[in-house]
């Protein structure tokens, strides 16, 4: 019984770790979408973050510097998206796609020298009083690296921020009706640019979590579609941070179950098992989109639409 409980705790703890890249990337995308910016470049930004983080951590020996570099590099890519869509009126879908294609190529090119190099990843937090040694709770609550806690803290901060702060209200206003927000004197394009940069930085952190913590190494296209799953999670969560974390845990769990089934030699071919997270994403999207009212009530009204300021 105690053994079983310990196993469950380990699986749940693994789920938290597997969910963390999704938590970061989708929280960032959520903030951008709340202001009306649909950035389909998450996958590319995550990859650039992953390689930049790995390179910086390999050079300095400090994962912390790696995460900073990842956030900066991915935010730089996001700036490209922001300038093109906000100041040159480019289509958000096309620009986001080119961001992903560019990011995949750029990360593969930059990362060529880092393939196969081992790296000391970021370890768990050293809690005082031997808290991590506690049975079950130790693994589940105190057994994680700092980024897991930071991701959850960011979710709480964003949820509270949207609900209770003036900044959150302004962000939402810009996403619901940019023309009205501009008439009230808010700098709509600057606010959107800021949200896009934040989204980029968060995607970068999510990518770097993969290359610095989850599997400390660099491999081409190592995100394996997580950027797209993060986009789907935002819809699934109906643009609410709390639900978004739940969704990320669900997907983290699905990934883990798939790995465990493979590990136990279940008689399903590995390739078909590996389709599970993608199929789950589709199912979840269908279930949540089935009721158009739910989407219409929750989606930011100006999402993905071109905004031209009136002088």
């Amino acid at each position: 019984m105690a053994d079983g409980l310990a196993t469950v705790a380990v699986v749940l703890a693994g789920t938290l770790a597997a969910a963390t890249p999704l938590v970061f990337a989708s929280l960032g995308e959520l903030v951008g979408e709340k202001t009306g910016m649909l950035n389909l470049g998450v996958e590319g930004m995550m990859l650039v973050g992953a390689v930049a983080g790995f390179a910086a951590a390999a050079a300095t020996g400090t994962p912390f510097v790696g995460f900073l570099a990842a956030a900066a590099a991915a935010a730089a890519l996001a700036a490209l998206f922001g300038v093109l869509t906000l100041y040159l009126f480019a289509n958000q879908v096309a620009t986001g796609l080119s961001l992903t294609i560019f990011g995949i190529g750029l990360s593969a090119m930059v990362g060529r020298g880092y393939v196969g190099i081992p790296l000391d990843g970021l370890g768990p937090v050293a809690w005082p009083f031997g808290l991590a040694e506690l049975p079950v709770v130790g693994v589940l609550v105190f057994g994680h690296d700092p980024m897991v806690y930071l991701g959850l803290a960011a979710a709480v901060a964003i949820a509270v921020g949207f609900k209770h702060t003036r900044l959150g209200t302004v962000l939402k206003a810009v996403g619901e009706n940019p023309t009205a927000a501009a008439a009230l004197g808010h700098p709509v394009r600057l606010i959107r640019l800021g949200a896009v940069l934040f989204g980029g930085a968060m995607s970068g952190l999510g990518g770097a979590y993969l290359s610095l913590v989850y599997s400390p190494m660099w491999a081409e296209e190592m995100t394996a579609g997580r950027g797209w799953i993060a986009l789907a999670l935002v819809v699934f969560a109906t643009w609410r941070p709390g639900r978004l974390v739940l969704g990320a845990w669900l997907f983290g769990g699905a990934t883990l179950v798939q790995l465990h089934l493979q590990g136990h030699g279940v008689a399903v071919p590995a390739q078909l098992l590996a389709t599970l997270p993608y199929l789950a994403t589709i199912v979840v999207l269908v279930v949540i989109s089935r009721d158009p009212v739910v989407i219409r009530l929750n989606a930011p009204a100006s999402l993905g639409k071109l905004y031209t300021p009136e002088r």
């Binding site: 490209l80 040159l88 620009t95 080119s98 560019f102 190529g105 750029l106 090119m109 060529r112």
Partner: peptide, 16 residues
């Protein structure tokens, strides 16, 4: 991988 960089750049410049 330079291919992807070039292809992304073409689309960026086109949009710009």
């Amino acid at each position: 991988a330079v291919t992807g960089v070039f292809q992304g750049m073409v689309l960026f410049f086109l949009l710009a």
